[in-house]
């Protein structure tokens, strides 16, 4: 049984924002991450503010500029299945399709996926870790085979989302509403690097709600993909993943984004890989150099050095696939 909480289902976005500013309130979107955290007492909640009545927040719409708006309450199933997403942004459709299980995709939403809490077993377990306001990261001298190889200054989680890296690779932006108005923010700047604040996952302010995600129009020649490696075929979080967005000019890479999943505490853009690829013909020498560059600056922990050849091999395969198109 969950610890008691009050519940409110506001009829407007403004009311939702207002309801979030009182006490220890949490947004309830699909509830799939939130209720799990409450069950495990990772944190508590005085009240849940359900976004279920905000119908405007669900659904996908093509925008006038030829991009796509995806409401924060759109289910992951609906993103994966949407014909426009499949056609224009296959990387995003693949990432959404790789999330969790059918049941969780039917219930989990885009906003919740971007704001979900990490899956580090110390954080989720009974450990007073840094992220929960404690003094140390237990993974450093502990079981860290699924922890990060980049960006782990003080806390060594990996960001659990498959969708966020795909959105970062597509230069997507979020639009929010909050007590002091709304704003737009690139998805690449949504997640909090732990050296700035290890107790928060996003830069959202108290009471700030993601309203939608805007994916800019796909440039001509866009190739996008998402690859996820896990330890079993059934549902699981990524052990390694990568989102590619390559803007091709024939067989030359005009521009690109390479974003690694399950590599770092935030979706991890790899400027080293991008630099090798940009302006080059996607031949095997370039591909091998790019895959090497992706892991050149990795800093593995005691038990996760296997991720280095894994990421390199995964990038080799994914870039070779891209070269064959």
């Amino acid at each position: 049984m969950l610890t008691p909480f009050a519940y409110v289902r506001p009829a407007s976005l403004q009311d939702a924002v207002a309801a979030l500013t009182e006490g220890n309130a949490h947004i309830h979107a699909g509830g799939t991450d939130l209720l799990g955290c409450l069950r495990d007492e990772v944190f508590g909640a005085d009240r849940l503010v359900s976004l279920a009545a905000l119908g405007d927040l669900a659904g996908l719409r093509e925008t006038r500029d030829g991009g796509l708006d995806i409401g924060a309450m759109t289910t992951i199933t609906d993103i994966a299945a949407h014909p426009l997403v499949q056609r224009r942004y296959p990387g995003l459709a693949q990432a959404a399709g790789e999330v969790a299980s059918p049941q969780l995709r039917n219930q989990g939403t885009l906003g919740g996926n971007l704001c979900q809490k990490p899956r580090c077993w110390y954080y989720r377990g009974d450990f007073p870790c840094l992220r929960k306001g404690g003094h140390k990261c237990f993974a450093v001298n502990g079981e860290n085979e699924y922890h990060c190889i980049f960006g782990g200054a003080n806390c060594f989680i990996v960001h659990p989302s498959d969708i966020a890296p795909a959105l970062v690779s597509l230069d997507a932006e979020i639009e929010t509403a909050g007590p002091s108005g709304g704003r737009r923010l690139p998805v690449s700047q949504l997640h909090m690097p732990p050296e700035q604040d290890p107790t928060r996952e996003t830069l959202l302010k108290p009471g700030e709600v993601i309203v939608k995600v805007h994916v800019p129009p796909a440039p001509a020649g866009l190739y996008s993909s998402y690859r996820k490696v896990r330890t079993r075929r059934s549902w699981d979080f990524a052990v390694a993943g990568c989102a590619l967005a390559l803007v091709m000019d024939g067989d030359r890479v005009r521009d690109c984004r390479v974003v690694l999943a399950a590599a770092a505490p935030i979706p991890w853009r790899s400027p080293e890989t991008e630099q090798v690829l940009r302006g080059q013909t996607l031949d095997d020498a370039v591909i091998r150099k790019a895959a090497k560059a992706a892991v050149a600056n990795a800093r593995p922990m005691t038990k996760n050095a296997y991720k280095i050849p894994l990421f390199e091999g995964m990038l080799l395969e994914e870039l070779r696939k891209a070269a064959q198109v």
């Binding site: 289902r9 309830h28 699909g30 509830g31 049941q103 039917n106």
Partner: peptide
Amino acid sequence: CTVLIDDLPRYACLTLALE
């Protein structure tokens, strides 16, 4: 705990009755 909600499989353990 899988049940169908509006024809779609979902987990009843992660669904509040109110929802």
